[in-house]
């Protein structure tokens, strides 16, 4: 089972994810922007459009104004998520020594890497729990929530909880950077790992990878497509609009007032 999850399933996941996303994006691209539905205030330059995209993507600006309590949970969750994903990439690639480039010693860098991992892992867990409680307790949110919305949160919670356990109880359940890097490298080079390799025999790691793959396979067929949807939508509604010049043809107000247009002759207007 663990051999299937770790050595065969990743390739299936890759195919499903890639072609699934391409299929969905292809369908979006096949339809057109028929009318101009840009949202006011209209940006005048592309740099302003970029500013809107950035403010929305980085700070969730609209959500900040429209639903502050959701913004707190959603923003924390996403910031923690991106930090964790970034941490995984650089941490595994450099074996936890990413901070030596900032002048830290090798040991200190590993400590730092672990500390940041725990912090953002716990933060993300807390944010996810917050979002789940929100779905159960607030009437309006309950009214828009379906079974798949709960399941998606629970799947994310499972991934994060397992990851946090591996971090916090590193010696009992965790795994070192080296075997993980080994695992990734072998996957990329299409080389199988020996059956007794740590990456295949650490139960929590296998489970973690299993759930992540489920998530990635669901990605193209679920609301996770909002990652692309956000940019696709904003591409439609946030774009440059140039106003026609004001000023009416053959109008000379000074002359009109001089001539007293509208004022009856011989008597005063108002």
């Amino acid at each position: 089972m663990s051999y299937f999850i770790m050595q065969i399933m990743p390739y299936i996941t890759l195919v499903v994810f890639t072609f699934g996303v391409l299929f969905r994006l292809g369908r979006w691209a096949g339809s057109r922007i028929v009318h101009n539905i840009t949202l006011a205030p209209f940006p005048q330059r592309n740099s302003q459009v970029l500013g809107i995209f950035a403010a929305e993507a980085i700070f969730f600006r609209s959500l900040f104004s429209s639903d502050r309590t959701l913004w707190v949970g959603a923003w924390l969750m996403h910031i923690a998520l991106f930090s964790v994903i970034g941490g995984h990439i650089v941490g595994i690639y450099t074996l936890g020594e990413e901070f030596i480039y900032l002048g830290l010693s090798s040991d200190l860098s590993k400590e730092m890497s672990a500390l940041l991992g725990v912090t953002f892992g716990i933060l993300m867990l807390a944010a996810l729990v917050y979002l789940l409680i929100r779905r159960f307790t607030i009437t309006k949110v309950k009214a828009v929530t379906g079974p798949s919305d709960y399941l998606m949160l629970i799947l994310l919670l499972a991934i994060v909880t397992i990851g946090d356990i591996m971090r916090v109880f590193e010696h009992q359940f965790g795994i070192d950077y080296a075997p993980v890097k080994d695992f990734v490298a072998h996957l990329i080079m299409l080389k199988p790992l020996p059956l007794d390799h740590l990456a295949l025999t650490t139960p929590f790691f296998v489970l973690h990878i299993f759930f992540v793959q489920i998530l990635l396979m669901l990605f193209p067929f679920s609301k996770l497509m909002h990652v692309f949807g956000m940019f696709a939508n904003r591409w439609i509604i946030n774009r440059v609009y140039k106003e026609p010049a004001p000023g009416l043809p053959n109008v000379d107000i000074a002359a009109a007032r001089q001539a007293g247009i509208g004022v009856p002759s011989g008597e005063g207007g108002v």
């Binding site: 339809s31 057109r32 959500l63």
Partner: peptide, 22 residues
Amino acid sequence: KKFRSFVTAMESCVKCGACAEN
């Protein structure tokens, strides 16, 4: 098949509920 604004509305909502009280 024609309106992208419609397709993306169909396929990218996460049902967060922010729109409700707006």
